[in-house]
Design a protein around this nucleic acid. Structure first.
Lengths: 230, 230
DNA sequence: AATTATTCAATTGTTGACAATCTTAAAAAT
DNA sequence: ATTTTTAAGATTGTCAACAATTGAATAATT
């Protein structure tokens, strides 16, 4: 047995802040998401209902609802009468994931180039400057770096003003991407930042075709980089 | 009040076949999906937990899990302490939906052109012939027509061999599309069939660029047609 | 008459217990 | 020693009851 969760269970409060206003089931969703995105739970790890319930001080009912929700987007995999595990992405799935990201995020970049406000565009540049500043520090971690990288993509998705793209790309695929990032550090450092700057420039100029093309290329490069580790 | 569900509740068995092998929560998912795709539940209609539970002869626990799952893809909308309703797509959402479908299904058409087997390609043509046959019958309903139309898109999605595109487009967006179809009959009859034939030809020839472009155009036309009704 | 309290019914949120199923490990048989 | 059987142990699936919240109808107040 592998009671990974039980070891964590004791000091939950120290692990993350939980919004007690939320429904128990939403608290459970947040907790499981956090456990995965911080690498405390990895691909194939069992997610025990009772353990999660104990961590939150609730019963299993809400936890089951949470697991059901996360399984509906394949972050967890549920088997009847057996339980649920964290999804294990293989090479093929990663190719599929990046194909979808390429299609949807280049759409998002195109929309962002059309729709982003002056303020948002300025904020985009600020975020890149901040990211660059982070990288110059001696103690910048791969984890932070991956976070800053993803933040850029979220800003583009936000600027696209498309709720559906946001949910699919930002939330659903984002969860799986967080899982990948927690396991393998999936950023290409300086080069990724450079490509982000090109994309931001195209978005700022309202050059939608270029923005879309650059985003597609960026995501393909990102995929190739990740596939090397498989 | 609007006890739409309670009237249905009595004769559930006659409404649809339910697979009793499945988990109760999956049975509930199937039931709710069916109620929506057949138009028995429409946008804004309340989905009462106890009613669904009564229809299936179960308790509310599994029903809550089902609602949670369907709400995670926005087919249902959940409000804390108030309940859940069927999602009400507005004009803006429909634009978003079709933008996403255009991006993902043209990707699917491209992949299908590369990957579909001879058998699958033949089956594609058969499906179109069958569809054409249906249309010539005097009693072909708009409902059947919409089903046959969607079947073609599913065949393409299947041929793309991309599990993620399948889940997002075929399942998630498919659910919402089924809701739209049940409310407004969303097919353009003869013209849609013709465009399907063009796409199928491109796929059969392995002409991926053309297949993708034709699919994108087809979906844009489909969107414009639907938007007229809003 | 209009507005505010107050009660009551309906619905959701949560729980703890029980039943069904699977897993593991010990015991029995070959 | 290897396999099979059996029996506990742990985990999931389901339920029925209770608590909390909301919505609506009634009563009370101005």
């Amino acid at each position: 047995m592998e009671p990974k969760l039980k070891k964590i269970a004791d000091n939950v409060q120290k692990i993350m802040e939980i919004d007690r206003q939320l429904l128990r089931s939403d608290q459970a969703v947040d907790l499981i998401r956090d456990l995965i995105s911080t690498g405390k739970l990895g691909p194939g790890d069992r997610v025990n209902e009772a353990d999660i319930a104990n961590m939150l001080g609730t019963s299993r009912g809400p936890v089951r609802e949470a697991i059901r929700k996360l399984a509906s987007t394949d972050l967890l995999v549920q088997e009847k009468n057996i339980g649920s595990k964290v999804f294990s992405p293989d090479k093929k799935f990663i190719c599929e994931l990046f194909d979808v990201r390429e299609a949807l995020e280049s759409l998002a970049a195109r929309l962002a180039a059309q729709l982003m406000s002056k303020q948002e565009k300025a904020h985009l540049i600020e975020a890149l400057d901040f990211h660059e500043g982070l990288m110059k520090k001696p103690d910048f971690s791969s984890y932070q770096h991956g976070g800053a990288d993803w933040d850029f993509h979220l800003l583009i998705l936000e600027g696209a003003r498309n709720q559906l793209v946001w949910r699919i790309c930002g939330t659903e695929l984002g969860d799986i991407f967080a899982l990948l990032r927690a396991q393998h550090g999936t950023s290409r450092g300086q080069q990724a930042l450079l490509e982000h700057r090109w994309i931001a420039a195209a978005v700022n100029n309202g050059n939608e075709d270029l923005a879309a093309a650059l985003m597609a290329q960026h995501i393909r490069a990102s995929r190739d980089n990740l596939l090397k580790k498989f």
